[in-house]
């Protein structure tokens, strides 16, 4: 690893290091058990039937609807049919959900710990330094932003303190990481923020805290009130009209 880090200044190396540390510590996505897959896809089958019912004949639709509604109401597709009717388990007590949360925690720690350490280190060694003079004039309001840690009243805001320079680099190096590690690197802050906002809506549907039995009951109701229309009704007339 040290060979890798040498030619790169320390801000870069820190990001690169963070990338690899995150990659190493990431938990592989947990494989789903067959009953869970069956539960999800059986529900999806009902949703598909509801959305695409027009493609099949009324006879075929009625048979499927009757089968699925009965099965949904009796809880036949649940991964734990004996638990039907019980309240949804607390997501905190579900080990699978805990795994996911631990993964997120680990990721956050990987970002936080080194950031705090380096910030403290920079603060201890470099506070009070002025490192750079910006090549353009600035108004007095920029003093607090650019001269953190330097308590001089009448220095021109063009001069920049080390702490401010550090903060600027941390936020400004995104494109450099993208270049070095590829755009989907783990040090990417945007990716991190996306992760915090929660996974996509698709995963949410079967997420922890949602009672599958309730979903099945809801879908059964949706199916039983669906008005069916067959696309093939009059298709020969439609086709003739469009061809002529």
């Amino acid at each position: 690893m040290s060979k890798l880090l040498d030619p790169i200044p320390h801000h870069h190396s820190y990001g690169v290091l963070r990338h690899y540390a995150t990659v190493l510590m990431a938990t592989a996505p947990k494989k789903q058990e067959t009953p869970a897959i069956r539960e999800q896809r059986s529900l999806l089958r009902g949703i598909n039937l509801r959305q695409n019912a027009n493609a099949i004949s009324p006879v075929a639709f009625n048979a499927r609807r009757d089968f699925l509604v009965t099965a949904y109401e009796s809880g036949q597709f649940l991964k734990a049919p004996e638990k039907k009717g019980e309240a949804a388990p607390n997501p905190m007590s579900d080990p699978a959900a805990m795994d996911g949360m631990m993964g997120m925690m680990k990721g956050n720690m990987m970002m936080m710990v080194p950031q705090t350490l380096i910030m403290g280190w920079i603060n201890a060694f470099f506070s009070g330094f002025v490192v750079i003079r910006l090549p353009f004039p600035l108004t007095i309001k920029f003093k607090s932003m650019l001269q953190a840690g330097v308590a001089t009243k009448d220095m021109d805001p063009q001069w920049m303190s080390s702490i401010s320079w550090y903060v600027l680099c941390i936020f400004g190096l995104q494109s450099v990481f993208n270049y070095l590690l590829g755009s989907d690197n783990a040090a990417s802050q945007t990716a991190q923020q996306m992760g915090q906002m929660g996974p996509g809506a698709g995963a949410n549907m079967f997420g922890p805290g949602v009672d599958p039995d309730k979903q099945f009951q809801g879908e059964a109701e949706n199916l039983s009130v669906l008005a069916h229309y067959y696309t093939l009704a009059g298709v020969e007339e439609r086709l003739l009209k469009s061809l002529s």
Partner: peptide, 19 residues
Amino acid sequence: PDGSLPLPSQKTVGLLNQK
């Protein structure tokens, strides 16, 4: 027929055949 679509007319089928 029971719930299914009625048979298409002779004329329609003839036209479809030509097309």
